[in-house]
Design a protein around this nucleic acid. Structure first.
Length: 276
DNA sequence: CCCCAGGGTAGGG
DNA sequence: CCCTACCATGGG
């Protein structure tokens, strides 16, 4: 994609079908972005992002070329060929409709710890509540940025927390799960860099040792926090889609990128409040 | 009062 | 292996 820099803003020349930042940042894969009219903003990797998109370009406001190269290019998964991914997924009408609805979604490369904690909080919860809990976690423990927003706290910044320290975040019974996750990382029982470099079978085993991390949360963490596109989270909605359209299982040829297909399907049925 | 939300755990068949 | 009660919390 052609990148230019003018007046302090970063311009990415692209069309909505290649990447749609509104759908990408508001499809349930991350919890820190909000849209107000044509602007969408949030925090990732300790940096505030304010952006908008037109028919011909994405504008990242007040963004240096260095920030783009080191943070946003990776975060937005700019270098992955989604045209090829989508072509290989057009194997039936169900997935085709979902891609037609929001084929501009990309799988973000989020910070592993943030994604892991966020999806621990997500269990048996709804997205508005997940967002408010994550936001309050950031306000209480994260580094304050220049514009007054807060970074997601590092595991080291949460070192030593007890469930009492999480009171008021509306985590419910999930507070102990966050405590266990933080403890394991800080005492070295869990190393997220090792998860990164492990094959997916080992990665699953390592993440599942955390209390509150079952099959679904684990797959979400792997897909959104470790960019394992083969990870396939099955929530209540996807369960309905599988029961209705894929009784014989999800097509095997999609296996290496099943997580991407899952996200197209999830977003379509959630936004339309129907099973396709 | 009910049910649901990007589920998981513990316990008992 | 399966099934179920229960887990906090807020919204509808």
């Amino acid at each position: 994609m052609n990148i230019t820099h003018k007046d302090g803003n970063l311009h990415i020349e692209t069309d909505m079908s290649s990447i749609n930042i509104y759908d990408t940042l508001d499809c349930g894969q991350c919890f820190r972005f909000k849209q107000e009219n044509e602007l969408i903003s949030g925090v990732a990797f300790g940096k505030k992002l304010v952006a908008k998109q037109t028919d011909s370009e994405i504008i990242l406001y007040d963004t240096t070329g260095d920030d783009y190269e080191t943070i946003w290019k990776s975060f937005l998964d700019i270098d992955t060929d989604y045209l090829q991914i989508k072509e290989s997924l057009l194997f039936d009408e169900t997935i085709s409709k979902a891609i037609d609805f929001a084929g501009g979604i990309r799988i973000l490369k989020q910070d592993s710890f943030e994604a892991l904690c966020s999806f621990i909080i997500s269990q048996n919860n709804n997205i508005p509540r997940i967002k408010s809990s994550v936001e309050r976690l950031c306000e209480r423990f994260g580094k304050k940025l220049n514009d007054g927003s807060y970074a997601f706290p590092l595991a080291s910044e949460l070192n030593g927390i007890k469930s009492n320290d999480l009171a008021g975040l509306s985590l419910g019974y999930r507070d102990n799960y966050i405590v266990d996750c933080v403890e394991r990382i800080n005492d070295g029982r869990l190393d997220l860099e090792i998860v990164h470099s492990s094959d997916i079978v080992v990665a699953r085993t390592l993440l599942r040792e955390i209390k509150g991390v079952g099959p679904k949360v684990c797959e979400c963490a792997l897909l959104f926090g470790f960019h394992r596109l083969e990870a396939f989270p099955i929530d209540t909605w996807i369960k309905k889609v599988l029961a209705t359209y894929y009784q014989g299982g999800f097509p095997e040829k999609a296996t290496p990128i099943a997580g991407v297909a899952q996200q197209y399907l999830f977003h379509y049925i959630r936004k339309n409040k129907i099973v396709i």
